[in-house]
């Protein structure tokens, strides 16, 4: 009798326990679903929100950053800010900057990285020139003053890696037929994405902008080979015995060069 009573009680208890556990688990599963969907949406990083130097790739960064704000506090130029809830921007609480407002001044000691307690900003970044926050892209050639043939040059002048990350490439000015166009040209390998160029662009809306590498860069197919590079590597023509015929130019009368510098002008 007492045995029966005992098992009866314990089975009722067990049933209640299992019922409670199942209910709580279901509640948590609902919450987990919402949370998973929400975090997936929060992963969309706007193109103009730039992570601090040394930031891990976005996926890893969102798992590593504890949103403490220590990088923001140690940034001497108040470049960095934390995303606020409700702001259409990076995931809430994570650090970023907007180059057009305040660019990264590329401190040599990289205090923001040093301050990071989790390594969401990778501590192996010790030379700020190796930072890769994004790539500057001269995004609007139609409005860029240099492309119009003027000598603005501001983005080139302010670049902390002048003549490495941005160079001025000289091409003929086809409009005047007698001047040069100094096109600001970004070299993605050297560009750190600091955003000094974007901030200082004199136009009301910058013609040069820092974009995340995933947007800014194309990728060459792995099987592509550039003939001239392969030739240089091999030291001789890859197909022996090829005859190099002379390049044929158009007939003298039909060819009028567009670029005709006047005598005495550079």
């Amino acid at each position: 009798m007492s045995d029966l009573k005992k098992t009866g009680l314990s089975s009722a208890k067990r049933r209640q326990f299992l019922g409670d556990a199942a209910r709580t688990a279901c509640g948590c599963a609902v919450a987990a679903t919402f949370l998973t969907v929400y975090q997936a949406q929060a992963k969309a990083l706007p193109a103009d929100a730039i992570r601090p130097p040394g930031a891990l790739p976005e996926e890893a960064f969102l798992g590593a950053c504890v949103r403490c704000g220590l990088c923001v506090r140690d940034c001497p130029y108040d470049t960095l800010k934390l995303a606020e809830l409700g702001e259409t921007g990076p995931a809430t609480g994570t650090p970023y900057f907007t180059a057009r407002d305040v660019p990264c001044e590329m401190c040599e000691d990289i205090p923001c990285v040093v301050a990071c307690p989790t390594g969401a900003l990778d501590h192996s970044l010790t030379n700020i020139d190796d930072a890769d926050m994004g790539v500057a892209v001269l995004i609007d050639q139609e409005n860029c003053l240099n492309f119009l043939g003027l000598r603005c040059d501001v983005c080139y002048r302010v670049c902390p890696l002048i003549d490495e990350a941005i160079t001025l490439e000289i091409t003929p000015n086809t409009r005047t037929g007698s001047h040069a166009v100094f096109t600001p040209t970004v070299h993605a390998d050297a560009c750190t994405g600091c955003g000094k160029c974007e901030q200082s662009c004199v136009l009301p809306e910058a013609a040069i902008k820092v974009l995340p590498r995933r947007i800014a860069r194309a990728e060459s197919a792995e099987h592509y080979r550039l003939g001239w590079e392969e030739k240089a590597k091999a030291g001789n023509a890859l197909v022996p015995g090829m005859i190099d015929l002379p390049d044929r130019m158009p007939d003298a009368g039909a060819f009028e060069p567009v670029f005709q510098p006047e005598k005495g002008q550079p």
Binding site: Q39, C65, R67, G93
Partner: peptide
């Protein structure tokens, strides 16, 4: 599962 601090969003 998501690889991000999802709970910190809320």
């Amino acid at each position: 599962g998501s690889g991000s601090l999802a709970y910190e969003l809320v």
